[in-house]
Design a protein around this nucleic acid. Structure first.
Length: 632
DNA sequence: AACAGTGTTGTGTGC
DNA sequence: CGCACACAACACTGT
């Protein structure tokens, strides 16, 4: 009978899991569930403590869920490079089948190819299920159905999906298993595993040419999750603790908790409110909501669960579909004004279709999807703080931006062409721009690891085409670190969208940091929640406190002063708190940016243009187009 | 070839 | 408050 090794990756759930389902269909005599604590992920994924905690919680929950299905099962967390550890396990347990969910992320492709080759070389069968687990449809098949082109509109995505299947609907979700086979009779020996990798054996951090730890600056202490060997400090294959990663205990501030149980409970709450789920209209939900769900006119908060695979995307799709059918049927039965459900793009299903569109667009372009260089769907705009280019001559011939080492303060990652724009970027990142709406969103992002989609629009537009004229790749890196739901395809896609460099082109539609939030929140509850300094400001000034007369500021207990970078003494003699002055005149910057975007559109370069790589783009821009384009 | 309509989610003014 | 419209004007699709 088969002996199955199940390698969990970004599918931290038991329901709606095609690879798991296929593995258990084999009726194996033993089933060994593992998660590899991959140094590539630990050192090369830009992630703050919130996202690590979410991962840890999701793994812990998964382990408990496995135990609930078989008392001797737990999730074995193996610390070290997956290739070596999996090779050791295949041998130790005489594994016949290696099962895992295919990962559409291009950065995982090389690793997965090596693991496939390993399995084939050992005569171990691969089990990946009969459909993708992470997306509704196979992204590569969608690309093929779209004539090999990246899907850049919802219409293209829907046409491609319709071409894949007669039904034009994704497959139904798969049931959660009711029982599991036992684990292999003996646990893997840490010594055997460690022999597979000399660094792990020596208690060193594994080195596979990893380069710098991109999170070094975020960690309070050195990273130590490999110091105890492959089985961890207690030799029990337990899930690492946040402290082992070098973060302080309690460094995670998000109220969102990871895990399949939490995901299904939240989905249940969404589906349990038929009017909310069926009449969901994204543009009508409030980026100023203080919570999730219908009471707050908020969204579902399910995105982090989709990212870690705690929630199956087909489970989400079909649960909502069921509610919609019920809702419309009930409306019809009761006669009169039939209850109308919303449709894509604004409906819940529409949100999943956008996600699908980004996955398919990424599948067509691979890693280039996440940057400008070499990316033929993204317009070239001579943004400030552009990514440096890799390659022997710094000419981009290597195609990868040399932004990998170090966090964004590392000057190696991008070129500081404008000290002014750099100061604006640092203030944007810190949430001290002096624009309360922008700062509130950024502070929510820092604490909760989550911001409403329209709030992300406001942040992204402000940093790029609607304010700072800073490269969207800078903003994308910050979101990568801070978002619990950071999905490379969706993040890059949305940054291109909002910067009007791909997917969208109406750059003259610009989000105002004063007018936009007033559509949902005239009193400024949201701003006062996240920027408590402004709690005493009257409604009239809450989004533009710099316009409040000195007397109003005094009565509000907060003075508008300081540059947002150097701390102001709160007791500057007057007993008033401080909130920074706005970093520029928004209307002025908006006009400058729109003119510069117009110029960039007229020049009409895309990321794969030779002139982008060799620097000759400079000759096509005059200095009027926001900043000098000659010389240094 | 020219044109109109549409595209997940803009703003400010005036009625 | 809700609505129409100007603002200045891009890309794609279908006719």
């Amino acid at each position: 009978r088969p002996r199955v090794l199940y390698w969990f990756r970004t599918d931290l759930r038991l329901h709606d899991s095609p690879a798991l389902h296929a593995a258990l269909e084999l009726d194996p005599e033993c089933f060994c569930p593992v998660f590899t604590w991959d140094p590539h992920y630990v050192y090369r994924t830009r992630a703050g403590p919130n996202r690590w905690q979410f991962l840890i919680d999701s793994l812990t929950h998964l382990s408990h869920a496995l135990t609930a299905l078989h008392p001797s099962q737990t999730l074995l967390v193996l610390r070290g490079p997956p290739l070596a550890l999996l090779a050791a396990l295949l041998a130790a347990h005489r594994i016949t089948h290696l099962a895992f969910e295919p990962d559409p992320d291009p950065r995982a492709a090389a690793r997965d190819a090596r693991v496939r080759a390993l399995a084939q070389a050992r005569g171990v069968a691969l089990v990946n299920g009969d459909r993708p687990g992470r997306t509704l449809w196979d992204p590569a098949a969608l690309v093929a159905a779209n004539a090999g082109r990246p899907t850049t509109s919802l219409a293209q995505l829907r046409r491609a999906a319709a071409a894949l299947a007669a039904a034009a609907e994704p497959p139904r979700p798969l049931a959660r298993p009711e029982r599991l086979p036992p684990p292999p009779p003996e646990r893997p020996s840490p010594a055997d595993l460690e022999r597979a990798d000399p660094d792990v054996a020596a208690g060193r951090a594994p080195d596979e040419g990893l380069g710098a730890d991109v999170n070094a600056a975020l960690r309070a202490r050195p990273e130590r999750s490999y110091a105890g060997g492959a089985a961890g400090p207690r030799a029990d294959f337990a899930v690492p603790a946040l402290e082992e990663l070098g973060f302080a205990a309690g460094a995670a501030t998000t109220p969102l908790r990871g895990g399949e149980g939490e995901a299904l409970a939240r989905l249940g709450a969404v589906a349990g409110d038929a009017a909310f789920a069926a009449r969901f209209a994204k543009p009508a939900t409030a980026p100023t909501a203080l919570g999730f769900g219908p009471e707050e006119n908020g969204t579902t908060g399910l995105s982090p669960y989709l990212h870690f695979g705690c929630l199956g995307v087909r489970e989400f799709w079909w649960r909502v579909q069921g509610v919609v059918e019920e809702y419309e049927g009930r409306g019809k039965r009761e006669g009169g004004g039939a209850a109308k459900a919303t449709r894509p793009p604004e409906s819940l299903a529409g949100q999943l279709l956008f996600r699908e569109m980004y996955f398919a667009a990424q599948a067509a372009l691979g890693e280039r999807f996440g940057r400008t260089v070499g990316n033929d769907i993204v317009r070239f705009v001579p943004w400030h703080l552009p990514s440096k280019l890799a390659g022997p001559n710094g000419d981009g011939s290597g195609l990868a931006p040399a932004d990998a080492p170090g966090p964004d303060d590392d000057a190696d990652a991008y070129r500081v062409d404008s000290p002014q724009a750099h100061a604006w970027f640092r203030r944007w990142r810190a949430g001290t721009t002096g624009f309360p709406w922008i700062d509130a969103l950024m502070r929510q992002l820092r604490r909760d690891g989550w911001v409403h989609h329209l709030g992300r629009h406001a942040l992204a537009c402000f940093l790029t085409r609607g304010g700072c004229y800073v490269d969207w790749e800078r903003g994308a890196r910050v979101f990568e670190e801070l978002l619990l739901d950071h999905e490379p395809a969706c993040n890059a896609g949305n940054w291109m969208w909002l910067s009007c460099t791909a997917f969208e082109s109406r750059f003259f539609r610009c989000y105002s940091p004063v007018a936009f939030p007033k559509r949902w929140d005239r009193e400024g509850r949201f701003v006062k929640r996240w920027v408590p300094e402004l709690g005493g400001f009257p409604e009239r000034f809450v989004y533009e406190p710099w316009n409040a007369p000195a007397e109003v500021q005094r009565k509000a207990g907060c003075a508008i002063r300081g540059d947002g970078l150097s701390p102001v003494e709160d007791d500057a003699g007057d007993g008033l708190q401080s909130y920074p002055e706005p970093m520029f005149d928004f209307a002025e910057r908006r006009d400058v940016c729109i003119r510069a975007m117009k110029k960039a559109y007229r020049v009409g370069l895309f990321g794969n243009d030779e002139r982008v790589l060799d620097g000759s783009w400079r000759r096509l821009f005059d200095d009027e187009a926001e900043g000098p384009t000659e010389g240094e």
